[in-house]
Design a protein around this nucleic acid. Structure first.
Lengths: 226, 226
DNA sequence: ATATTACTATGAAAATATTGGTTATTGAGG
DNA sequence: CCTCAATAACCAATATTTTCATAGTAATAT
């Protein structure tokens, strides 16, 4: 996920950044509200972590501004302990959740996951990912081709979902490794190739439809037709 | 959605109506409580937006009346800023959420979405949830299969209800944990698995009907047939 | 000809199922 | 108000099942 952190205490900001990066997120930190607001408007983040105590602009105002400008990105507020009024104000200003400082990092991760889950639950418009005569139902986690249901394992599903969300784009092994296995390094193994093979056996072998997962030698794999 | 707005300030009423219509909702506005209450009883709305400061009848009274008359439609109160007592009274009278005036339109939209989400998840005022030959009576909290009554504990009931309200959808342990136990973090225990096992023993073991709760390894559990 | 990718079998590891026991909670009776 | 018993909730261990990662070989592309 791409995450924007607006936090003036540099130590706290660095702590959050480091921790989130260890969880394979992409993080940008702004120490002032003005810069943070600008960034939020210009880029498309998956989550904004916003300290309410900021120099320059009040966090609640910032939050309200973003919502007024139709920025729908989930916002997680950081508040001082027992700042009940801040919490109420913040939620009214359009924030989605809050976390009282000081907090354990695991709490932050938990909130973050809860938020993305909630968001995914609401965004049900993309329940089915389809390409050519292949469909992937993100609710049932089942694939379907030629009227036939196909059961996938967790890794197979993650891989197919990635391919279907990036049809026509060549995905490098490094990118696949990071997205599906959460690894940022090259393991030196052929695990990805093996899983591509598993997928091909399930969604291509025995089906009359054309080949969908194509190898680009030296580059990676693509989901495409022709 | 079909939305009823009860608001005496015509400017505010018009503002809400216009905004909601831009979001493709169907809106009716009543400027007085008596007319609004009448409308709420006669038509079937998806949401009622109710100003607490009304001429003729008090908003809280109106809210209480509707609930007494078995109108289950979600009610979103509009209150003056810092009218804490009103908020408490309103929620006690059966309102589902509140919004302090003045508010940004995006806040209203957010509340509305949150309410409809909550409603879909929890407020299915259908007394009996049924799937295949299994029934769950949400009033008596009893399950029934093959003409035989099954008593459930609180957690078992909550879990079964969740599954039945999301048949066909794979529910992750994280989601189940949040919905049934209210936890946003992973306790590191296998409590969910144990309760799935309890449920299976009660609703599957000893019944001729087919298996209904399916495990999807690495993903979670689903209620489905076949 | 060689680098790269495809395929396959297998043991290891992870995930899940099941069971037994411990701690909480509740409700009746003293 | 307390005690006790019954039930529910929870946890941890072990058993079982499924999935995964590896490595070796075959096939294919450049």
């Amino acid at each position: 996920m791409k995450i924007l952190v607006i936090e003036d205490e540099t130590k706290v900001g660095a702590f959050i950044k480091r921790g989130l990066e260890e969880h394979h997120h992409q993080v940008e930190v702004y120490a002032d509200g003005i810069g943070g607001q600008q960034a939020a408007l210009e880029h498309d983040y998956d989550l904004i972590i916003l300290d309410l105590m900021l120099p320059g602009i009040n966090g609640i105002t910032l939050c309200r501004n973003l919502r007024a400008l139709e920025v729908g990105t989930p916002i997680l507020m950081l508040t001082a302990l027992n700042a009940t009024q801040d919490i109420v104000d913040g939620l009214n200003a359009g924030a989605d959740d809050y976390l009282a400082k000081p907090f354990h990092f695991s709490e932050l991760i938990a909130r973050l996951q809860a938020l993305s889950r909630r968001k995914n639950q609401f965004h049900q418009d993309q329940a089915i990912l389809a390409f050519a005569d292949l469909q992937l139902n993100t609710n049932t986690k089942m694939a379907r081709r030629g009227g036939q249901d196909i059961t996938l394992t967790a890794k197979e599903y993650a891989l197919l979902e990635l391919l279907l969300k990036n049809t026509g784009k060549v995905l490098s092994r490094a990118l696949i490794s990071e997205a599906v296995w959460g690894l940022e390094f090259d393991t030196g193994t052929n695990t990805i190739d093996v899983y591509v093979n598993y997928l091909r056996n399930k969604i291509e072998k025995g089906f009359s439809g054309e080949k969908l997962i194509h190898t680009v030698v030296g580059m990676g794999y693509v989901m495409k037709q022709k």
